[in-house]
Amino acid sequence: MTINTLHRAAQNGDSNAEGALFALLSARFRYFAEHKIESRDDAEEIVQEALKTILDKYRDIEFTTSFAAWAYKVLDNKILAYFRRSTVQRERMKGSTDADETPVMTVEETALERQLLECLRKLHAANRRHARVLNLHYLGFTVEEICRRVDVTRNNLYSLLHRARARLADCLETGDMS
């Protein structure tokens, strides 16, 4: 069932549908939030806040567009609020406990990381363009600038990344580069 179908069923009092709807939303929201927010704890808090807002309101709202779009907007607003809270000047509390510096990555190299490094080496031996794009991206260049430097269109850049990702995923599964 799609998210909008689940929503309609839940709105009509189907508690199983409601459970399935929120399980689906939790997984998706967690994925989106962790993509944007460094701290997993903060991301989890944002997700819970968004889910709570949706739970409180979804039964009473008559949706003229789609429920999915509305739910997504709720999460989006919570994430936006989080970033504003983190940066705006009012957050100058001396000794604030909010200002936690989240480490970027654990120090220990994981098995997946080793495998990924190996696959990237293989990929880049054959596809230097991907290495260049990735390097420019890591250096902070925007997509427009990368396209200009590598001399590709934006769509071609996305295709290049897509193909590289497919080969990497394949390599991670099989240990070999097709």
């Binding site: 990381e113 290495a131 990735l134």
Partner: peptide
């Protein structure tokens, strides 16, 4: 894997070296 590509300093270093 995507998270590592985004954040791992070792991967960045390797890409830079390559």
């Amino acid at each position: 894997a995507a998270r590592l590509l985004r954040k791992s300093p070792r991967i960045r270093e390797m890409v830079s070296d390559t």
